[in-house]
Design a binder for these strands. Sequence first.
DNA 1: GCAAAACGGGG
DNA 2: GTGTACGTTTTGC
Length: 810
Amino acid sequence: MEDEWLWGWDPTPGIVSVWAEPDGRAFVWRRLPGTGALVRDDVRFRPWLLLASLDDLTHLGARLRPESEGPVPRGVNYQELEGPGALRYVVRADDGRALAAAVLHGAARRLGRQLGHVRELGESAVLSLPPEEQYLIASGRTYFRDLGFDDLRRMQFDLETTGLDPGRDRIFLVALREPDGRTDVIEAHGDGDAAEADLLRRLVARVRAIDPDVIENHNLHGFDLPFIARRARVLNVPLALGRAGLPGLRQRPASRGASLGSGSMGRTPDPMRRMRYTLPGRELIDTLDAVLRHDFSARDLPGHGLKAVARHFGLAGPEREHIPGARVYEVYGRDPERVRRYARDDVTEAAGLARLLGGAAFALARMAPRRYERLADAGPATGVLDPLLVRAYLRAGAALPAHESGDGTPHSGAALHLFATGVARHIVKADVASLYPSLMREYRIGPRRDRLGVLLALVDRLVEHRLAAKARARSAAPGSPERHTNEALSAAMKIVVNSAYGYLGAVGLTRFADVHAANEVTRRGREVLGLLCRELARRGVTLLEADTDGVYFAVPDDWREADERRVVSEVAALLPPRVHLEFDGRYAAMLSHEPKNYVLQSYEGELILRGVAFRSSRAEPFGEDFLRRALRCLLAGDIPGVRETYVATVTALRRRTIPTLDVAANVRLKKTPSEYLAVRERRRELSYEAVLASGRKHWAAGEHVRVYRAVRGRAGLLPDPDAEDDGSARHDSRDDGGGGAAGEPLDYDVDYYVRLLRETFAARLVRALAPEDFAAVFADPEQPSLFAPSLANARPILTVLAEPSSELGE
DNA sequence: GCAAAACGGGG
DNA sequence: GTGTACGTTTTGC
């Protein structure tokens, strides 16, 4: 039974896509085991709804019959589910439209008004799923049984356009990557409507010839598909991208989680942001969704753009061609070969990213009764757990609770303790892996209304399967499909397991939400964190910061790694059986600044900056550079070194030996010229003033510029460093040169940047030094104080804020 | 310093 | 096939 809850029960292998129509037709594309040949099964299913009452169907008279009496022509069958639960009647008919029409007819009579859709009856009265999900839930089938990720036919395509606005701009080139890894580009022959229409027709023909199961790209749903849809409409090109004579590209409403932006009222709503697209027979997968899902837990990505992510994961080759987006079309004019390379690199990276991060959604699709593409962009709670729960209840013939609003009990959160600020050495991080699901399992904390215990059973099975998958992954050869599949399975199960707690706490959003259960989980969590902190402190460590499920602490200088591990395992042994405290890492030093804001230095010397205080996205390069060098000195205990770094930076600013490029901020112009001019009198913004002052009256919203504060309150604009060169001009800032090599102006406002250095960057070291030392280290080098203390004996400080016992309430 | 608004990503 | 959700950073007073 529990296996059926997790995996479904129908053994049909190889399903790669499902398309179902409300009229009861379903099309199932499968790859045959062994040959991998594609077949399409055209089947019928009985569309169904879940209702709280049969009242709206009694008007059918004899055409409403119990399921056990068999189908009625043009009628509806019903089955009453057992047990408590608002949604207790499954109603089925041959045609879902007739079924819905019958319900709507009855509802209109009862309510005295017409409804457009059964959903308008409300979540407590009806559950109506998309046809594919009706089919998958009823049949017990899931995608990808007995298939590996590499058995899918995956293709990628990437548009190059003259701009970002499909109402104005055009597609001039498309890069394609075939399932075997070959890449190719197709281009518009000319720049009129006919050439672009011809390009679109060739793209459609190529997709149909390649006949992929899956189409992937980065921001596919946010850019490429809406762009294509719009251009095809304007140019009157049919987009028959799907499989077999069914309709072409269709829109579906944006789903939760991954859709970007809110395109709110007021300003022009951006329709590109909300849509999702779908095709019969193929799955449309956006790697941006996988990236967001990954970063939600990992939180280690520098950005979510394709290039940044590919670089981060080592997918970018050394020869990777780079062109700033705004220049692509212009570069194409004089060096088309370079744009071709760039576009091919894009699809290659998108394919690599899809394989690296896409396995989790693939694995989810083997469990949950939804289309693969829906699972790729779904939130794990309502997108994965809820369909699993619905399928389990229906399989058991059990009535399903409807959504219920909370009783007003507030949701209590996790514990966060800051024990000390400043600099400490010999740091250990220990944490509990999957704390909340472990507590749910250990203390059997599940939703009150889940009388079958499905959620806890799912979590139990997922944890067991996950451990097994991890073990299989470890024993498989690195890079092998076996390893990839098991790592993906493990990642998918982790997503679901970790969302079980979120599911509990999402009152009003999830069917079985239970704030009391959620609060019991966090209460146990706070208890565990408090216990492990107290027990660590008793063993002679200095606690620094503890957050939810992990703790940083410092150990005495003479401890070895073995001592660190011993103390962690001693404390681990005192925790509840399923709660596993793990040794998560060791670091040479740590600057504890504020809760969730700290700097770690590894024993290899690498600096790790965490939290908003240390990660400002548009920070000026000279300041970032200063901060990193000062932190290195600080964490090594070298206070005179911090002073030297500061003096050197101030001096270099005053002598203007720091290039203007290093004081400039890289900003994006978000407002159009007219939008800015409209608000200019109310508030002036440096970036736009810089552009205007340079004599330019026109710019495109979204354009990146480098701006700085120049002398006499002027705003300075630097020429785009990416303009002409090969894009490798990532400027390496070191105060070693006499200004910009290209003769850039050195007219930045020195006083302003000296102040910025002190108040914004140096200020991040304030917790690390005694007040008199801080004042001395960051004193103005041109105004030497007579009483300046010697820094030779200065040491970083650690300030204990709370004794663990008082902070932890014991 | 705070609340409100904008952003994310794509060329 | 409509609507709301998010979390973080920047802006505006």
